[in-house]
Amino acid sequence: MSQKGVNAQYRRTDGYVYRLTVGEHLLVSLHARGEEPFYALTPTGALLWESLAEWSTLDDLCARLIGEYEVTRDQAAVDVMDFLEQLESLQAVESRQLES
């Protein structure tokens, strides 16, 4: 787990809108051009996206997953970091460092 992950807070940007339609959890881009300006999320991804409405630490996000699913903290942490990296690559999440 990177230091940034442990010592940071994350929040979703306002460049995407979440939609649940036809059984698909979708992130719809407000500013992207392209063939299909939306992405599918897994249900757990959708759960984290909801949490990211507020500034959240890795611990906050892991706790949300552990609260909903039977998963170890280590497993949850790996998943959350992967997900955050994916969101960062889409500029769908912003981060700030916590004071140490």
Partner: peptide, 22 residues
């Protein structure tokens, strides 16, 4: 359980949406 953005192309995703919506 995996929190992720599955690597599905937009076109395939749209097709899936259309089929399921129908």
């Amino acid at each position: 359980m995996t929190a992720t953005i599955p690597k599905v192309s937009g076109a395939i995703l749209k097709k899936r949406l259309v089929v399921n919506a129908r």
